[in-house]
């Protein structure tokens, strides 16, 4: 299909979203990511049983922590789609990019820059 999605989205490939750990999400924000979304298989369709369900719980935990530390829980999101849904993938990438752009840059990144200056 050769569909285009926003170039600011950096894809990190994993064998299953069940591999996503809470610390991976937090480190991304610590390193300055403005937003993170986890794209897992449709619920009930995990090849490994319940990897995407585990990922959803971890995303919820990350939301909770990010809210408490003042970064904003909305910066992390879980999506479920099948690998054949390319148009949906593009739609999500655009949706997330627009949402994060509206929220502005990661305050941690800004604080680090301010401290380095």
């Amino acid at each position: 299909m050769r569909l285009q999605y926003p170039p600011n989205v950096k894809i990190i490939c994993l064998p299953c979203t069940g591999k996503v750990d809470l610390i991976h999400i937090l480190r991304a924000f610590e390193k300055g990511a403005d937003g993170v979304y986890v794209a897992g298989c449709l619920e009930g369709a995990c090849q490994f049983g319940n990897g995407n369900i585990k990922a959803r719980k971890r995303v919820e935990q990350a939301k909770n922590i990010l809210e408490k530390v003042g970064i904003g829980g909305e910066r992390v999101q879980m999506y479920n789609l099948s690998s054949s849904e390319a148009p949906r993938f593009v739609e999500i990438a655009k949706e997330m990019t627009e949402k994060i752009t509206a929220m502005g840059p990661n305050p941690i990144k800004m604080a680090k820059k301010k401290m380095a200056a």
């Binding site: 937090l26 480190r27 610590e30 922590i65 530390v69 003042g70 941690i108 604080a111 680090k112 401290m115």
Partner: peptide, 12 residues
């Protein structure tokens, strides 16, 4: 996880 959360909180 806790150390990362605290680092982000104080930086913020």
């Amino acid at each position: 996880i806790l150390a990362s959360s605290l680092r982000m909180y104080f930086l913020n």
